[in-house]
Amino acid sequence: MPNSDLQLLRPKEVCQLLGGIHISTLYRWMDEGKFPVQKIQIGPRAVGFKRSEVEKYINGEMGEHTEESDSEVAAA
């Protein structure tokens, strides 16, 4: 089995793992700091994300985006 730390996921694959969000939502979350996984440039017009870091985010081991956090920000 390949080492998950070395596997890269393309943005569309990350979107599917995050519940089928739109790719523009992924990039907006990145701009807003809600998706803290660093993208890796793998070509002139191609980026990837380390599978291990995406899995940490999904498992709550990094800052995560939730609807509750949105409502807390709106209430502030």
Rank of each mutant, 00 (worst) to 15 (best):
S69H: 08
G19K: 05
Q41P: 02
G48E: 07
E32Y: 05
V14E: 06
P44E: 11
P36Y: 11
L18F: 05
E32F: 05
G20V: 11
I23P: 03
R51C: 09
G48Y: 04
E13Q: 14
L9C: 08
V73Y: 13
N3R: 10
R51N: 05
L6N: 13
G43E: 10
A74M: 11
K12R: 13
V14Y: 04
Q38E: 14
E32T: 09
R45H: 11
D5R: 12
T25Y: 06
R51Y: 12
D70I: 06
R28K: 15
R51I: 00
K50L: 09
Q41C: 09
P11L: 06
A75N: 14
P11I: 03
S52L: 02
V47Q: 14
G20R: 11
E61Q: 15
I40Y: 01
N3K: 08
P36S: 09
V73F: 14
E55N: 04
E67A: 08
P11F: 02
I58Y: 01
P2A: 04
K56M: 09
E67T: 06
S4A: 03
V54W: 03
T66Y: 01
T66E: 02
P36T: 11
R28G: 05
Y57R: 00
W29E: 13
G63H: 00
A46V: 12
E64D: 05
K34T: 06
D5Q: 10
R10I: 13
I40K: 02
H65R: 13
T66A: 03
P2G: 01
L9Y: 13
Y57A: 02
L17E: 13
H65F: 15
R45I: 00
Y57N: 04
G63V: 05
K50G: 01
L17F: 05
H22T: 12
G63E: 02
G19Q: 07
G20Y: 13
R45A: 05
M30V: 10
I40C: 01
Y27Q: 13
E55W: 00
E53D: 15
L8H: 03
P11C: 03
K34D: 14
T66Q: 06
R51A: 08
M1L: 04
M30F: 00
Y57F: 12
G63K: 06
H65S: 14
K39S: 14
V14P: 03
R28F: 06
T25K: 10
K34Q: 14
G43Y: 08
T66R: 04
K50D: 01
I58E: 11
S71A: 12
G19P: 08
P11A: 04
V37T: 12
D70F: 00
L9I: 06
I42M: 12
F49Q: 10
A46L: 12
G60P: 00
H22M: 13
F35M: 05
K34G: 04
I42V: 14
L6I: 08
A76H: 04
Q38F: 03
S4W: 01
P11V: 04
W29G: 09
L6Y: 08
M1R: 05
G20F: 09
E64N: 05
D70Q: 02
V73E: 15
L6K: 09
L26R: 09
E67M: 03
G60D: 01
I42H: 02
L17H: 08
G43D: 11
Q16G: 02
F35N: 09
C15L: 01
Y57G: 04
K50Q: 13
L26G: 12
G60W: 01
G63N: 03
G63R: 05
E32H: 08
W29S: 12
G48S: 07
